[in-house]
Amino acid sequence: MIAAVPMAHGLILAGCLFAIGLIGVLVRRDIIFVLASIEIMLNASGLAFVVAGSRWGQPDGQIMFIFILTMAATEVSVGLALALQLHGRLRTLDIDAASKMRG
C-alpha cells in the first residue's frame, strides 16, 4: 500500500483546481473554454470528495465522485447543445454576444 497522501495536500490541490476553473469561467469568453473550466471545477470538487473519503476510510467519497461524473456528462451534453445553438444563431462562440435577455 502506498503511503497515504496527507489530506491537506489533496484539499489544497482541489482548491487550486476549483479556483483555476472559476477564473476560467469568469475570464474566458469562448463557450468551449467556459465549459472546460466548469469541468475543471466539477473535477476539483470530485477530488475533494475522494480525498475526504480516503481520510475517513469510507467509500462514500468515491460514490459521490461517480455522481459528479454522471452530472458532468449531462452538463457537457447540454453545454455542447448550447454551443451549437449559439454558433447556429449568432455565428460566434462568444458568450457575451448572447446577452439579449438583459433586463
Binding site: 472559476l22 446577452s99 435577455m101 438583459r102
Partner: peptide
C-alpha cells in the same frame, strides 16, 4: 447589474 452576460452572473454567484 442585470446585464445579460453569463460571466457576470457567475461572478455574482461566486
Amino acid at each position: 447589474t442585470e446585464s445579460g452576460r453569463v460571466r457576470w452572473y457567475a461572478a455574482g454567484i461566486a
